Computed example of a mutant assay.
Amino acid sequence: MRTGPSYRGGPADRQALRALAGDQWWQQQAAVGRMLTVSPGLRGGDPDDVVLAGLIAVRSFLTLDDAPLGWRWLERRLVAGSADAHPCLVGLASGLRRLPSYRGAVVRAAGTLPPRASAPLPGTELCPAGPVGAYVREGAPAPAGDRYLIWSMTGRRVRALTGSPARTGPEEVLFAPGTRFRVLGTRGGTGVTTVLLREVAAGEPAGRPGDQDAADRQAMEQLTQAVAGPATAEDPAPWPPRLAGPLAEGHPRGDGTV
């Protein structure tokens, strides 16, 4: 099952990605090359330039912050509507498809949601243009404010690309650019709102506010059990900014952009 719009890239996108990365390309390529030595199956039989471009885009997003191809850099370009964002999104979509998927509940910090965003009508869909990061709920710290609890189907495990040792700290999951999330409901706590979402498969009809289908109800049951389970941590902990912030409403357009 694939999610998000169909970002189709070609040699020109890979060349643009490399040009944007500058000198960082070689450092990222060395790290990705070491990972591929350990996990050659991620190549999938594709040419080296295709494999490296996608995985370098993902690793850059995860590790560079303000530098070109980093998450803050991409966020600013998306806000500005810059054409530089397109080859980055293409690379991210390509690289993420190679990584193992995670099925289950993940949590994302939302900060303090405004009233409308903290009480969205079930069936409303959120569709950020860029990737969406979250922690696997089991073992995650508690966000300090509002949060999203998401039922993931194809969110990608990215630990292998960040160099974090296995079983060290909470595990991060990254959803591809343009992934749709459907609101299932909300749960309130002491000054805290949890918005329950499910990942929506590509090709699924858009949700209608106020309605729920069988997949919604099944995901709702799973997330309700997760909410009722043990707390992720006794006290809120610092939360990586890359895995925080509100998610925008909307739907992907048919041309592969959002």
Rank of each mutant, 00 (worst) to 15 (best):
residue 109 A to G: 11
residue 228 A to T: 06
residue 22 G to D: 00
residue 72 R to N: 11
residue 63 T to G: 13
residue 152 S to M: 07
residue 107 V to K: 00
residue 154 T to P: 09
residue 141 P to M: 14
residue 43 R to C: 14
residue 95 G to A: 10
residue 74 L to Y: 05
residue 225 Q to H: 15
residue 199 E to H: 01
residue 64 L to W: 11
residue 141 P to R: 14
residue 256 G to H: 01
residue 135 Y to W: 09
residue 139 G to A: 06
residue 133 G to R: 04
residue 148 Y to R: 13
residue 117 A to K: 07
residue 226 A to E: 02
residue 164 S to N: 13
residue 166 A to L: 11
residue 35 M to G: 04
residue 166 A to G: 07
residue 188 G to N: 08
residue 39 S to Y: 15
residue 19 A to W: 07
residue 63 T to M: 12
residue 221 E to K: 13
residue 100 P to L: 03
residue 88 C to D: 04
residue 122 P to F: 10
residue 74 L to A: 05
residue 81 G to C: 11
residue 34 R to G: 06
residue 84 D to I: 05
residue 6 S to R: 10
residue 117 A to M: 08
residue 97 R to V: 03
residue 163 G to T: 09
residue 120 P to F: 06
residue 187 R to N: 00
residue 15 Q to D: 13
residue 131 P to Y: 05
residue 197 L to K: 00
residue 217 R to K: 10
residue 118 S to N: 08
residue 78 L to P: 11
residue 183 V to Q: 03
residue 247 L to Y: 02
residue 129 A to V: 05
residue 31 A to R: 05
residue 71 W to A: 06
residue 122 P to K: 07
residue 152 S to F: 11
residue 177 P to H: 01
residue 238 P to S: 12
residue 54 G to N: 08
residue 126 L to A: 06
residue 200 V to D: 00
residue 28 Q to K: 05
residue 5 P to M: 01
residue 126 L to E: 04
residue 14 R to D: 10
residue 151 W to C: 09
residue 102 Y to E: 11
residue 216 D to K: 02
residue 144 A to P: 08
residue 131 P to M: 07
residue 55 L to Q: 10
residue 249 E to N: 05
residue 36 L to G: 00
residue 219 A to R: 06
residue 242 R to I: 06
residue 118 S to P: 14
residue 11 P to F: 09
residue 59 R to M: 07
residue 157 R to P: 04
residue 112 T to K: 15
residue 45 G to E: 01
residue 258 V to I: 01
residue 166 A to I: 07
residue 179 T to I: 01
residue 219 A to H: 03
residue 77 R to P: 11
residue 190 T to W: 08
residue 58 V to Y: 13
residue 149 L to K: 08
residue 11 P to V: 12
residue 145 G to L: 13
residue 66 D to R: 14
residue 212 Q to Y: 12
residue 200 V to C: 06
residue 191 G to T: 04
residue 95 G to C: 03
residue 48 D to S: 14
residue 132 V to D: 02
residue 139 G to D: 07
residue 258 V to G: 10
residue 133 G to S: 05
residue 45 G to F: 10
residue 250 G to F: 02
residue 116 R to N: 10
residue 216 D to W: 03
residue 237 A to W: 09
residue 115 P to G: 12
residue 251 H to D: 03
residue 109 A to W: 12
residue 151 W to E: 06
residue 110 A to G: 06
residue 65 D to N: 15
residue 82 S to T: 03
residue 160 A to T: 12
residue 225 Q to N: 12
residue 2 R to L: 15
residue 29 Q to S: 12
residue 163 G to Q: 09
residue 223 L to K: 00
residue 173 V to I: 01
residue 207 G to M: 00
residue 75 E to Y: 09
residue 62 L to N: 09
residue 218 Q to K: 08
residue 155 G to D: 04
residue 188 G to L: 10
residue 184 L to A: 00
residue 81 G to R: 13
residue 26 W to L: 07
residue 142 A to H: 05
residue 177 P to V: 01
residue 150 I to A: 08
residue 235 D to Y: 14
residue 59 R to Q: 11
residue 93 A to K: 09
residue 55 L to D: 04
residue 157 R to G: 11
residue 75 E to D: 14
residue 195 V to T: 07
residue 204 E to Q: 01
residue 179 T to V: 01
residue 13 D to Y: 01
residue 60 S to A: 14
residue 87 P to L: 06
residue 73 W to E: 10
residue 58 V to S: 12
residue 118 S to C: 15
